[in-house]
Design a protein around this nucleic acid. Structure first.
Lengths: 206, 206
DNA sequence: ACGCCAATAGGACAATTGCCCTAAAGGAAA
DNA sequence: TTTCCTTTAGGGCAATTGTCCTATTGGCGT
């Protein structure tokens, strides 16, 4: 049963290496060396490279989902939860500086390779997209929620890409601050909208 | 002297392949096959792979600069010129859908590879950054110009990344429209600011 | 016509790639 | 202890990688 441990060690090491160097440039040998096992042992757990990629993507999905779930317990308002999403950029800035966004860069690479797992990688984006969507819905912005989610997702991607390129801390801080102001603004208009709606509801005798 | 032609053929083919598949996954053989020359001939023109990369980056810089210069002649206002920049997304949407932004994805890849040419790739970003900067300065927004340039650059990068992931035409259209509205807003406030300034100048007797 | 160098071809190099095989070790169930 | 299957090791496969070498061709200047 120690095999399970080895298997998850492999996935963990591959996850890190795929992030730092990219999927294609990372070889079996690189991963095996990092986990300190033989290539033969490696092959016993994963017959083809694509298998590892799928497992890595699945692991990333689980990790991200756990993070989102945790925020749900720690923050009481949708705006607060969205704030946590924006904070990812600040909390992981050292890694983003060197290797970019783990989801964005993987998706781009797989798109170029025309790799079948591309859609699974996009699903990682969808995780955040749908989660953000729900936060905006909870604000009372059902009809705009998905568009707002995509807008914020895009902005954070842009910030990550340019921070990775220019490595300018001031730029990143400004983008984070701007996104937070944007969320506050959205939340404020949402609040006034629902207030208007409840007034209208009252007038209509609901 | 036909060698010059061959050399530029190589660079052109490499440019395309580096964009479509990425730098690392593209081999000498791939390029040579595309240009229809032997590996020996290839080696005569480029001793190491990095050399081609540098030349490709330089070619991209020249191409982009030519494009920017052309806009300068075709559009009379800074806002109009910035509009042309935003239009890149619409004009190249088929390629972006499949391979992302040529500059953003190359920069990300080279960052992961810790490649010395990374900074040259970032210079491609700087080309646009400085050009946008100049447009905003021309609007009369000297002090904010670089920040506005970075903001727009980031937004277009985010749009490209998410369009490449989700391939949602509506999203791209919305982002383009939003960016254009944003530019119009910036231009409007700039105009009112300079008006205020000229009034103040008048009052001060300038 | 001759000489010279750029241009091209094609083969070969060691190293590395993803992948596969066989054999030994380990550990739980009988 | 014996049995059996999982886990591990390590060698080896053909194919591909970037790089290099030598030999032939081709065109321009003299």
């Amino acid at each position: 049963m120690a095999g399970r441990q080895t298997r998850s060690d492999i996935v963990k090491a591959a996850d890190e290496l795929f992030y730092r160097r990219g999927y294609e440039p990372t070889s079996f040998a690189d991963i095996a060396e990092k986990v300190n096992i033989s290539r033969g042992n490696f092959y016993h757990h994963f017959k083809v490279k694509d298998e590892i990629l799928n497992e890595v993507i699945q692991k990333r999905a689980v990790d991200r989902q756990a993070m989102l779930d945790a925020w749900e317990g720690e923050e009481t308002t949708p705006a607060g939860r969205i704030g946590r999403f924006i904070d990812i950029l600040a909390m992981n800035c050292d890694k983003i500086r060197l290797h970019g966004c783990p989801i964005g860069t993987l998706t781009s690479e797989l798109a170029k390779l025309d790799h079948p797992a591309r859609e699974e990688a996009v699903a990682l984006f969808s995780l955040f997209r749908n989660w953000l969507n729900r936060q905006f819905v909870e604000m009372g912005l059902e009809e705009k929620a998905d568009r707002l989610a995509m807008e914020l997702l895009a902005r954070s991607q842009g910030a990550a890409t340019l921070y990775n390129a220019f490595r300018d801390d001031d730029f990143l801080s400004r983008e984070i601050a701007a996104m937070k102001r944007w969320v506050a603004g959205v939340a404020a208009t949402a609040a006034s909208l629902t207030k208007d709606q409840s007034i209208k509801d009252l007038e209509r005798g609901l």
